[in-house]
Amino acid sequence: MAEKLVAVWDSTKCLQCGLCVGVCPVNAIRLTERGIEIDVEKCTGCGICVKGCPVAALELKKIVLDGGSHEK
């Protein structure tokens, strides 16, 4: 199974400010009624959103791609 480094979102820290959406170079992040949604297919794990987040609500984690996505 393929492993991939992607940004993972912590809803308990997030202010839903949308900074990560604007800085994502591949348009992988959306701010919706449910909070931040990260498209793990698009995410390249570049970490720009992680650095930019004012409250460290994002971090890079390895996930296993097998149709669904699971943190490792």
């Binding site: 400010c17 949308g18 900074l19 959406v21 604007g22 800085v23 170079p25 348009n27 959306r30 701010l31 720009i48 650095k51 930019g52 987040c53 004012p54 409250v55």
Partner: peptide, 25 residues
């Protein structure tokens, strides 16, 4: 706003490098 999703969906490149972004709190 900052997210600038609509222009990007329409095909206009409004991406801004992190160098030109300030993080506010």
């Amino acid at each position: 706003g900052f997210e600038s999703t609509i222009a990007r969906l329409a095909g206009l490149n409004t991406f801004q490098p992190a160098y030109h972004v300030d993080s506010g709190f």
